[in-house]
Write a protein that binds this DNA or RNA. Structure first.
Lengths: 208, 208, 208, 208
DNA sequence: TTCTAAGCGAGACGGTACGTCCGGTCTTTTG
DNA sequence: CAAAAGACCGGACGTACCGTCTCGCTTAGAA
């Protein structure tokens, strides 16, 4: 994840437990303190590890938090509820549930904020978090096309544009609802949202 | 804005210039350094003001940045382009343009992240930034109803829910596109987005 | 004392009470806080006076403290106990009693320390405090010569030297006993000291 | 000196050079700035050391200055000039020479002043500076008794009282001469002083 | 088995910013 | 005018973290 070292043959190997302990401690600290009050010294203490061990593995706070948060989203998966609308509702609800956890809220927005002036960090965020979940959109569309709910997409350029748009709309709306509006993305909201999104897309493709 | 002092009659009054200079310096520092490297001492220096003057007016970095960023969004206004779709496209483009400015990017996301563990700050963000721009949605819907593009909304509860949903979708999608996907919300994207949104809403209200 | 303003005829006259209140507040603050923690703002508050009023009268902390401490030593007077030894014992005890008061201890030593790098301040200390009490030595010797306990001093140069020496020995010993050794200059100590001093001086003049 | 740490086996050991550099820088700053304008930040800079390093070793300005000044007095030693009077003259002249150095003047009086309201500091001053030089008085008396210039002291209580008295008289007179009277304790003055002291003591013990 | 390179804990190190406090000055309104 | 009030600039305070640097001590694969 963070190590690109091509496995040095000699010397004492790095402790595998340390990695897990550090990431867990990071999430715990995010919950209790939030990003800005989280300190690497504190994380090291919580993980029962020396500061040097931590710095040997991560370049700084941002990189550490990205890795700690990224793990949270790996549990997302597309449920098979029989219809596209239900599938989407299901995954959006899962996404909202994760975003509602304080370690995700605080950490995710902070690294996004940081990444606005740090290209390497933005790339890391996109690779580790965003891009990794793009699979859900692709998988969902594929399944819907198989079911006949969506027509096969002939134009690959327009297709890519649409996938991006969907992703921006879904992720953006849930994040805004949860973090900015400060209200829960409950079932009612998710149902409303999903219906607007799907009907908009349907009309779009019907016309276009 | 930040002062609720009911005007003490005696003593030297606070400098009005200082406020403006500080907020401007804050935005400049956000551009050059980003939120996390912005220091109040540096802002004070840029503003030609003592650190104490700054602390007399704001409780900390977060409050200062909220006020500095909030001013950016006041220039938003709903253009009258003749149709609802064009009006929305116009305001979304304006919004995207503001979000593309580095002081907005860095500052806004950071205070949102901070506000996840600080209720007072979240309220300040909502009051100073979010709620203040809700006017655009209301004004746009009103105008569209007057034009006959949208039916008059009879159920006030559902109406409120819809306004919130629209706001989450618009703001969320633009923010996600700009900050997370790291691509510009250009005319093409805005047109696609607006069409999906409006057609979704139209279908929704047609059914509901 | 501190004001050299040649009495401006016009405008509101300075409050006479303020001076006394400020000096008293200074001494009180010396007792409670000591020199280094005494602040002019605090003195002003204690005196019920604005900081500006204080600065209009004194140039700074050191000058203020010198004046506040100087007043303490004006109550010294040479008792007439019948013999030189008893007179000296008496005045030394008085001196020790004053030095035992915390406002004197803390203030006096501090301004002496400050004066080591500030010629104007040293002069102020010498004029306001030290020189003013030299009278006691002169008066004592005169009285003793009148009584026949000391021979008339023919050589004026040697006489001056002796007066200075006595002053250094008396003031120095009492100060050292009180402040450095941290023990009281009680009757026992004063009697021992006085005897050594007088017998030393007697032998000296007997030889010389 | 300041560290009572019983040598922690683990971690990076404290730099021994830093201690010396800090104390030297402190003395230099005392010379140039005096006690009240000496700042720990400035001392750290002069010593080429971080402020934290300084605070890790000393609790504050006072403790630091005590240690810096204490070292100055360690060079005092009782010369063997053949007679008690000459020995005393010699050591008093040495003492006066040290006190004439600006780092001693400014620093010593200031910490004495500070110690009037801080018992721990007074104890530190007494232990590190005063008591440590008491050896000179003891050694001098012993040597004089060996030579037969002073009778063996039978009563231990009176003996202790006399040692204290001598110390108060010697240290006090020299300090007062140097710092308060503002004149040099030159050979003439030292000879006069020593004669008075010794003859006084001689007469005392002759009687008592 | 011994060697040896790296990992590890502890904690000192040079820095930077913090938020507070004071020193002095300046600018109001009130007397 | 003086005085009270209090905002202002500047600068030091002592603290907290940063990221780096020694230390002495494992640890496990290579010699």
């Amino acid at each position: 994840m963070q190590s690109r070292t091509p496995a040095s043959r000699t010397g004492r190997p790095r402790s595998a437990e340390a990695d897990a302990a550090i990431l867990a401690a990071t999430r715990q600290a995010l919950v209790e303190l939030g990003w800005s009050k989280l300190t690497l010294g504190d994380v090291a203490t919580r993980a029962g590890v020396a500061k040097t061990t931590l710095y040997r593995r991560w370049a700084g706070k941002n990189e550490l938090v990205v890795d700690a948060v990224a793990e949270l989203f790996d549990e997302l998966e597309l449920p098979d509820c029989g219809s596209l609308a239900d599938d989407i509702e299901g995954v959006v609800l899962q996404f909202a549930a994760i975003l509602d956890r304080p370690e995700a809220k605080s950490g995710l927005m902070a690294v996004v904020a940081e990444s606005t002036l740090d290209d390497a960090l933005r790339e890391r965020v996109r690779t580790s978090i965003v891009q990794r979940q793009m699979r859900l959109v692709l998988e969902g569309r594929e399944r819907a096309q198989f079911r006949g709910e969506l027509p096969p997409e002939p134009d690959p350029e327009e297709s890519a544009r649409t996938v991006e748009l969907i992703f921006d709309m879904v992720a953006g709306a849930v994040v805004h609802r949860t973090l900015v509006s400060g209200k829960q993305a409950d079932e009612q909201w998710v149902r409303d949202f999903t219906r607007v999104l799907l009907q908009g897309l349907a009309a779009e493709s019907g016309e276009g």
